[in-house]
Amino acid sequence: MNPNRCDDIRNTGADRGENETQMDGNENYSRNQNIQPQDSRNPRHSDGYTMIPPNESRRSKLLRMSQKEQDDLQRWKEEHRPGPIQQAPERLGGAVSLEEVRQRQQAGSYRSKLQKKLKQEDMNRCRRQAEEEENQRMKDKQREKANKHELKKKQEEEQRKELYQHDLLMKREAHLQKLERSNTVPMAASSSTPTSSWARGHEYREARKVQEEVSLQQKKDEQRKKSQLLEEKHKQEEEDRKRQMENERLRVNSAFLDRLEARGSGRASESLSCTPELGNVWQTEEPQDPASSPVSFPSQLHTDSAAEEDTDRERVVMKLQSMFSYCDREYLEDIVSQCNGNYQQAYDLLSA
């Protein structure tokens, strides 16, 4: 048995005896107080304050109740006091090493951070989704209001148009009835009464309108005549310019052809004058060295004849181009080459 437990029990018994003795003293004191006269309950007045003595019987009763509650509390504490702990000593930490514990702590910390991050992301996603749903709901509500407002506006516009058409028809009918009544008036009465200001204004406006139309038509006719004259003038100037260009081109071509004919006639006379002499030389004299001989050889004569033939064809092409200006030069050269430089044959072929 624990000796400390025994000492506590002894102390508790001693305290209980002292409490009982004190309670007996309180009871005797309360009896003595009850014996006191009733005059002790009267208030006592002193300088600046009044003192009322308490009821001794009630006070003693409250003291007994409080003392009993304290004793009960002390008794309950003694009964429910925990006993001594009997546990065999052992080494803390188990069979796990320090490194493994650190690794587990680090892994747990990383997992906790990751879980916290994932939880935060989930919360943010849920919040954004809730905000989007709220925004969409508000948009739908505003769209519905706008559609209702638009429909209401269209209905009001249709009603306004109907009222306007109705008023317009009523005014037209009233105006027609007024005109009919005015037309039913006898001619004598109408001729005797002077014309109204509205009729005079209407006639004046009609006359002004007719005058404006006539003046506008006259201006249009004048503008049309001016444009026609200007167009004819431009056409005439264009024709004159084309005629001048054609005359200039014909003049240049004629001058060029004249020069070509003069050049060709000079070469032909030279060839005719030199041909008999060359024939005599070939018949009488023996062949000499080509470098020292002043007379041309047959190859040179063939070259000169080819050049003259090209010149004749060029002259024929120029003549045909002056006559048929709408044809290309290459086409005319092809025609002349097919006709072997014959001008009349090429002319007949192009004219056909």
Rank of each mutant, 00 (worst) to 15 (best):
P290E: 04
L260Q: 10
D15A: 15
P194Y: 01
E206I: 05
D122Y: 03
A107Y: 06
R125W: 09
S196F: 02
A307C: 05
N124T: 07
Q67L: 10
A352G: 08
K77Y: 12
D72T: 13
R181C: 04
Q288P: 01
K161Q: 10
D258V: 10
S109G: 09
G279I: 09
P84N: 03
N2V: 04
R160W: 00
E277W: 11
Q103E: 15
Q106S: 09
R5C: 02
H45Q: 15
R263S: 15
S265N: 05
R241D: 02
G48S: 00
R102K: 13
L179H: 05
W198P: 03
A95N: 04
I9P: 00
Q283L: 14
G266D: 11
T195W: 06
T193S: 11
M51N: 09
F256Y: 12
Q236H: 14
R172E: 13
S192V: 08
E162M: 05
N42I: 03
G266Y: 11
D39V: 10
Q228Y: 06
A95D: 08
K145F: 07
T50S: 06
R16D: 09
E285D: 08
C274D: 12
V317E: 07
E277P: 01
Q103I: 09
R75E: 07
E239A: 14
A262I: 03
K235G: 03
Q159T: 02
Q142F: 11
M187W: 05
D328F: 01
L229C: 05
P194D: 02
S109M: 08
S60M: 08
G13V: 15
K233C: 00
E277H: 13
Q115S: 11
E69M: 12
S269Q: 15
Q321M: 13
Q344L: 04
S40D: 14
K171N: 09
S325F: 02
Q105Y: 04
M123C: 06
K117Y: 04
N34W: 08
